[in-house]
Write a protein that binds this DNA or RNA. Structure first.
Length: 403
DNA sequence: ACGCCTTTGAAGAGC
DNA sequence: GCTCTTCAAAGGCGT
């Protein structure tokens, strides 16, 4: 159990983030009772470490959540409840505090986004790279509606998009869970790609092999928590997956992808057929176990489609900028939700691949040139506001973030 | 075909 | 302990 004992160790990021939020002065609108203090978060997270914790009542949690956040009522009436019911017991402890945020629907249906006027680019001469950046920023900004102060109606997105993979439905809704990368894309392939527009998903669905629809839940977390997951348990072990995303234990895991990466994975995803690949070639390709997604990645995965729809953007770089701003605009509870999911991700990942190290994947991506690295570093130093905390990227939403 | 862009967070390496 | 680097997702874009 490599990191299970680390307690808050791997949560530091979350804690740090929370601290950052304090500084951003976004607490005005914080709910007094349900406010997620850092200690709460720490408690919550440490509670996750105890995988074998007692049970809580999801319904009660939802009720409490609804009391604290009326809007949560709408959320908890949702399929998410199903997930809550299936949550590992240890989750309940933390969930009691944050159910409204956890596994609920759109996390920010009502929070104010503030569109900041200017792209992050400073004045001065621009390198081609800068021009490219500006072009992206402008492209994103150009598609944004004029900022309208005041509360905005929540975007008309279906909250169902947050269905949880643990109870992975076969229809094409995007679940939000720590298990997304392991369950959705790679297990319920064909049913839906979480970030793809519906039409694309449907296209994929055409190729969905019949047997996948029989898979109940690709992440059948036992009530007692992931620690009890065993290779033989509920995992979908399809012979066709052998050799592609199959863990050495026999557990199919989407985090495992062929060396060649995306393309090949898509191949498997969409067709789920053994490719007429030469054996030798197969053997030569060692599967790559991907890193577990962090909180922001999970958030992106969930929200990408929404941003794409809202902003009619497709370029990931621009979308990610928006998502970055939205991420910062999230309340602590809402962020905590994703930190929580990410934590579960890591724990599960750890259990599935005890010996795996992030270092294993080093060098599998082409490194950026040293020059660019230095370039960006110096740029960040010289213009700190252009970095992660620039606060100038548009949120695309008609609301704004005040920084 | 392949890498870059862009975001945040986690983790490893090096000092 | 701190800083730096790399990777995780995503899809348009440039070479």
């Amino acid at each position: 159990m490599p990191q299970l004992g680390s307690g808050g160790g791997d949560d530091l990021g979350a804690t740090d983030e929370m601290l950052a939020f304090k500084d951003e002065g976004e607490q005005e609108e914080k709910i007094p009772e349900n406010a997620f203090t850092e200690r709460d978060l720490a408690d919550l997270k440490s509670s996750l470490v105890n995988e074998s914790e007692g049970s809580g009542s999801p319904a009660a949690a939802a009720a409490a959540a609804a009391a604290a956040d009326p809007e949560a009522i709408r959320r908890v009436q949702d399929p998410h409840r199903v997930y809550q019911e299936k949550l590992p017991d240890h989750m309940d402890d933390g969930m009691k505090h944050q159910d409204p945020g956890m596994y609920k629907g759109s996390a920010y249906s009502g929070y104010p986004f503030l569109m900041l006027s200017d792209p992050y680019l400073p004045n001065g001469s621009m390198s081609p790279l800068d021009v490219s950046k500006q072009r992206r920023a402008v492209a994103a900004a150009a598609l944004l509606p004029a900022a309208q102060p005041g509360p905005d109606p929540p975007p008309p997105f279906s909250l169902q998009s947050n269905k949880v993979p643990v109870v992975q439905p076969s229809h094409g809704v995007h679940p939000l869970t720590p298990l997304i990368p392991y369950s959705n894309d790679h297990f319920s392939h064909g049913s839906h790609s979480p970030h793809l527009p519906a039409d694309i998903s449907q296209k994929q669905a055409v190729h969905r092999p019949s047997q996948t629809s029989d898979i109940p839940g690709f992440y059948p977390l036992p009530p007692a928590g992931v620690s009890q997951i065993t290779p033989s348990m509920g995992w979908f072990t399809h012979p066709l997956m052998l050799g592609s995303g199959m863990h050495t234990t026999g557990i199919p895991h989407p985090a495992i992808v062929p060396h060649s990466g995306k393309q090949e994975m898509e191949h498997y995803d969409r067709n789920m057929k053994p490719q007429p690949e030469p054996k030798r070639e197969k053997e030569a390709k060692k599967p790559t176990i991907k890193k577990p997604l962090n909180a922001f990645m999970l958030y992106m995965k969930e929200m990408r489609a929404k941003v794409i729809a809202e902003c009619t953007l497709k370029e990931s770089a621009a979308i990610n900028q928006i998502l970055g701003r939205r991420w910062h605009a999230l309340s602590r509870e809402e962020q905590a939700k994703y930190y929580e999911l990410a934590r579960k991700e890591r724990q599960l990942h750890m259990q599935l691949y005890p010996g795996w190290s992030a270092r294993d994947n080093y060098g599998k991506k082409k490194r950026r040139t040293r020059e660019k690295q230095q370039d960006s570093n110096s740029a960040k130093k010289s213009t700190p506001s252009s970095g992660r905390d620039s606060g100038k990227e548009p949120l695309c939403s008609s609301t704004q973030v005040d920084h």
